[in-house]
Structure formats: C-alpha cells, structure tokens
Design a protein around this nucleic acid. Structure first.
Length: 578
RNA sequence: UGGGCUGUCGCCAAGUGGUAAGGCAGCGGGUUUUGGUCCCGCCAUCCGGGGGUUCGAAUCCUCCCAGCCCAGCCA
C-alpha cells in the first residue's frame, strides 16, 4: 500500500500496520532526534471544552497521539479551560469519551490549564517585575483604537509606564476581585508598532467574575490563550506543540513569553493545515448553530461531522483513523473529497461486516410452482471475505419480497435483474423467472409478481451449470422482520462551504434530502436481536448500523455508507447519453 | 495597499539539485451466487507564471500572479 519504508531521516516512522507517508512534522522530529535536541518526544492534544469534537479534531488527535505512538513518546490530553464563560463539564466528558472511542489513550497524562492558574499567576508577577507587563486601564473600545490597524501602527497605552510597584499592587487587587470586569487588564509590554498585531501589547489577564467548572469562584482573573498555552506546554515538557495554521502569527508571542520566563523548557510550535471535508462545515460556531437551530437532531445526529455523530451513524473508529492517516499532514489549505472517507469505511467494513438480506422497498413475489406450505432453511455464508465468519440459516417460502427497484417492466439494455420473462438468481436460493405482473386495478401500481422457480437450482446453481446474469436479494414474506431504516446523504449541497454566494449563508445550502426515513423495510429474521451499535452489510445495498433508539419492538438501522453502485452509474450515463 | 503562510494530476500528497511516489476519484478489461469485493491495465514530458544560476532545477536566486490567515479583555 505504502511503498516508503521507515528509514531514519526520511520523516517516515512506523505506524499501525501500514507505513505512514512522510510529512514535514515527522521530518522535524527525525531531525530533532538525530541531532540529540530531544531523546524522546512529548506531544499534546489541547481541546477547549466548549463544544463537541469533530472529524477535524480527529485529524489532530491522530496526528498527536499517532506521533507519540510511532516515536515511543507520550501524548498529553490537556483541556485548555481558560475561559469559564464558554466551558462546561459536559464537553470535558464528551471529549474524553470521543478520544477513547477513537482508540487513543492518554494514560495518566490528563491535564487542565486551570491546574496551572497559580503558577501562571506567579509567572505573570515575574513579567511585571521585569517591567514586561503592565496593568492597563483602557476600555475595550479604547484599546481597539490604540491597537491601530493592519497597515497603521498602534499607539502606546497611557498606562504603559506604570511603576513595577503600582503594577504589582493593581494586579494583586485584580486577583482579589477589587475591580469590575473590563475595567482593567494585564498586558504584555512588547511593541505597539509591530507589524504583527499579536505583538502589540497583547492582553495576558482579564477580569472575569464567572464561575469556572473546575476552580469554582477561586479566581476573579483568567489568563488568555497565548500566555497560557506556551507556559502550559513548557510546564509539561512538551517537545513539539502542534497546532493549526491560524496560530502561525501567534508563534512569535509564544516564543516571546517563554523567552522572558524561567520555564523548564521551550517547546517548538509547529503549524499544519486544518481539515476541510467536502459537503460539510467544521467550525464550532456553525455546528453549534445547527444543533441549537434545530437543523439537526443534536450533536450526535448521524449527519453531523462530529465524532459523536459519526459514531452513531456507524463509522468505525478504525476507518476514521485510516482516513486521517491517508489525508496527510501539510501546510496547504485543502478540501478533502468525501469519497475518500467513504472508501475508508467500505474498505474496513467489507472485511468484517456480516451480510444480511434486507428489502427496503418491498415488492411481493409469489412463486407459483413452489409448494404452498413449504419452508426451507437455507444456509448462507456470513461473509465471503472471511472464511471464519461462519454461516446462518435463512427461511425461504412460496411468497417473498424483493426490492422494487430490482424489477423493471421494460428492461433497459444491460439489465441483469428481473423483468417479464427474465430469469435471475435469488441469492443463496433458486432461479426464478417472472411470468406475470399483477397491478392494482385502481392505481395501476404493480403490487405483485407471479414467478416460477427451477427446483433444480437449489443453492443458486443448476446441475447443468446454466448461468444467469443477475443475483438479487429477497426476504421470505412469512418470516419478514419489519424495521425502520434511515438513509443519509450529505448535510449540504455545496462541496466547498467556503464558497458561499453573496447574500447567502451556509444554511441556504442545507440538503433537504439529507435524511430519508423508511418506516417499513423488511429484513431476514436473523436481524431480530441486533444490538445498538452493531454494524453489518445489507447485501447489495450498503453498510448499516443499529441506532441507539432501536428497541426490540422497533428496530432502527442507520445507513453508514452505500456500496459502490456500478449499475446506477452506468444507467445514469446511458440516460444522459440519449 | 502591514505582517505571516501556501501554490506538484479532478481531490489529497511524497519529493530537501540528478531527471515527477502513493492513495482517492475516473477510464478500460478479467474474475465473481452482492452490477460488492478482488485482479490487471491506463491516468502530470511536467511541478502557479516569467527570467536567471547549473552539465543538470519541482527543488537554488529573482520578479510577478493567485489563494488563505491576522485588527476578541475567544481559543
């Protein structure tokens, strides 16, 4: 699959099963290991607990934990919880569950930025004592005005030259809760004329009288991301601090703080391009809006690109990891085809999914020359890809259901399925030939097919080896198990949601057909005790997963992904070719 | 029009001066009791564009073009 070997210095390490493609981060790590800069690596995944994880986070998780695994290092899980206004324990818990479900383990390396609040505070006093931080009394509006613009340098704050003593006193009183929110903040004293706006005396601490989900009402002031993140990394002895591209401009500030402070080490920040997936959105803001606006049924709606949604849909973690390995890691903005994700899911499930026969849109078929009350128990293999998967028995009788779409009254060219006068194989069972079409007198809708079977074709082949072109799935009417099946399509109709037409919003591109509920599908009896989370293949249709809402008296399946459908493609081509 | 970053096949992406990996998608063929799987073959004389250095460049220099990010007391 991957030809490249894990040679030292090539950026190629070992991974689960297959060789990973080299990338610039592995290249940097190899270099750092060879030069002796590091003996081993420590990475970290630093989510803010203010939302659910999505497939973009999965890329970062696979990267950070994968690197640690491949290089025999460790990866920390650290919650970046410096903004109590947005963060909740519900999110902390869902994030941990999602990471575990994806198959990664942070062992005992679970941290919270809030664990460092006291040390962060002390370091801030250090900064003040060095004359590198000051308490600023400018209002938010004033500060914005003083900051300048992209092309115009900023102006120094009038409070920039307060004495160390005054700054220390004010900062301590900030901590003590003496001042109102927004009345003052602590700022780094760097350079208001810097072309990099992040360096224009950025805020380090703000007053916030909000209760924190872990520290309660202990703090009246909270540190900002830029200050917190680099110090937390250093305290945890992170070697490579990997983040997304938008933080590239923040790197000088990351380095500046660490250069001023006597921290235990100075990690290297490395930025990579975040994942964009066709036909979906990835920003927390938009995902939250989809949930709160009722456009989907929750964070775990099977159409959502959240880990929770994908899990409920039935995507195996193995497939998601494979996908994350295949998309690579680079710095160019990209939009990954949805087909790649589908491929990963199909490839994994093909090997392990038990096959069943389920008819989504039933058409009754009576086999006229089959004995009236006879029921045969047919043995079927569970998975042709896996000789050890065993077999199951399926009842067969005189009346069966087939897929309405497997019958055409007027067969188009290259039609291999059922049509008047045509013979097909019923999977695992007999050859049948369509003799008559029965319609409802009023509606003219086809309600039944009258067929005959070849008694010599039991098991799906005849003694003389007569061939049939098509094989279709079926379900015995007398044993049919009713169930609900939910079919999903893309949540949006636009592949690239960054290219929204002027005057429209992403919500204008919601796909009205993203979910189609089939309340009355019929399945073979063996699916009767399928438990939520169970994945299987509905033969000739796709891979499906039992929904958590499923119950004994109402079985519910979600379609994970269809099988490739060469016929549909051919038919479409023939139609457009006319 | 300040700063930072990026530009290699439809989509990802290797490549680090020696003459364009791989995957997905697509196309053609074979096998097949899933029009699934599997197998075989095809798919960039060219690396955003122009100059230059060199025996030799996607890789170095230079100019240009295009796209993305930054003006939260968010992360």
């Amino acid at each position: 699959m991957f030809d490249q070997r894990g040679e030292p210095g090539t950026g190629v390490g070992s991974t689960e099963g297959i060789k990973p493609i080299s990338n610039f981060i592995r290249f940097i790590i190899d270099r750092d290991l060879e030069s002796g800069k590091h003996k081993s690596i420590v990475t970290r995944f630093p989510p803010e607990p203010n939302g659910y994880l999505h497939i973009g986070h999965a890329k970062s998780i696979c990267l950070n934990f994968g690197l640690a695994r491949d290089y025999d290092g460790v990866c920390h899980l650290r919650f970046d919880d410096t903004n109590p206004a947005k963060e909740e324990v519900e999110y902390v818990e869902s994030i941990m569950a999602d990471i575990r479900w994806l198959g990664f383990d942070w062992k005992d390396k679970l941290f919270y930025a809030s664990d460092y609040f006291e040390r962060l505070y002390e370091y801030a006093e250090d900064l003040i004592r060095q004359g590198k931080a000051f308490v600023c009394d400018l209002s938010q509006d004033e500060m914005r005005a003083y900051r300048g613009t992209l092309t115009v340098p900023g102006k120094d704050s009038p409070w920039r030259d307060r004495s160390v003593e005054e700054n220390l006193d004010l900062f301590r009183r900030m901590r003590a809760g003496e001042f109102e929110e927004g009345s003052r903040c602590l700022r780094a004293r760097i350079d208001m004329a810097s072309p990099n706006i992040n360096m224009r005396d950025p805020v380090i601490y703000r007053i916030k009288k909000t209760e924190h989900h872990r520290t309660g009402d202990q703090w009246q002031i909270y540190p900002m991301y830029d200050y917190t993140h680099c110090v937390s990394d250093a305290l945890e002895m992170i070697t490579h601090s990997i983040c997304t591209l938008e933080f590239e401009d923040h790197r000088p500030l990351y380095d500046w703080f660490l250069d001023q402070l006597s921290v235990p080490c100075h990690p290297q920040q490395i930025e990579f391009a975040r994942l964009n997936l066709a036909y979906t959105v990835m920003s927390k803001r938009r995902l939250l809006e989809l949930v709160e606006g009722g456009y989907v049924r929750g964070w775990d709606d099977p159409r959502m690109p959240t880990i929770a949604g994908m899990r409920r849909r039935g995507f195996p973690p193995e497939a998601i990891r494979d996908f994350c390995d295949r998309i690579g890691v680079a710095k160019a903005d990209s939009l990954v085809d949805y087909e790649l994700l589908q491929f990963c899911v199909r490839e994994y499930l093909n090997k392990i999914a038990t096959r069943y026969m389920v008819v989504l849109d039933p058409l009754r078929v009576v086999i006229e020359n089959y004995p009236d009350e006879c029921v045969e128990n047919i043995t079927a293999d569970n998975n042709p890809e896996d000789a050890n998967a065993g077999t199951r028995t399926i009842p067969f009788g005189k009346v069966i259901y087939i897929e309405r779409d497997d019958f055409r009254e007027a067969a188009p060219s290259k039609w291999f399925r059922l049509a008047p006068g045509m013979e097909v194989r019923l999977k695992h069972a007999y050859y049948i030939t369509c003799k008559e079409v029965v319609r409802d007198p009023a509606s003219r809708k086809i309600v039944e097919l009258r067929c005959t079977y070849d008694p010599e074709s039991g098991g799906g082949s005849t003694p003389e080896g007569r061939k049939v072109k098509g094989t279709i799935h079926w379900v015995s009417a007398a044993h049919a198990l009713p169930m609900e099946v939910r079919l999903y399509d893309q949540l949006f109709t636009l592949p690239d949601l960054s290219e929204i037409e002027a005057g429209k919003t992403y919500l204008d591109y919601l796909n009205p057909d993203s979910i189609k509920v089939i309340p009355n599908a019929v399945a073979e009896i063996n699916l009767g005790n399928a438990k939520p989370g169970t994945r299987c293949q509905f033969m000739r249709q796709g891979y499906f997963c039992v929904d958590p809402e499923s119950a004994e008296d109402k079985i519910v399946f979600n379609r994970i992904v269809t099988l490739k459908d060469t016929w549909a493609k051919l038919e479409k081509k023939m139609e457009s070719g006319k």
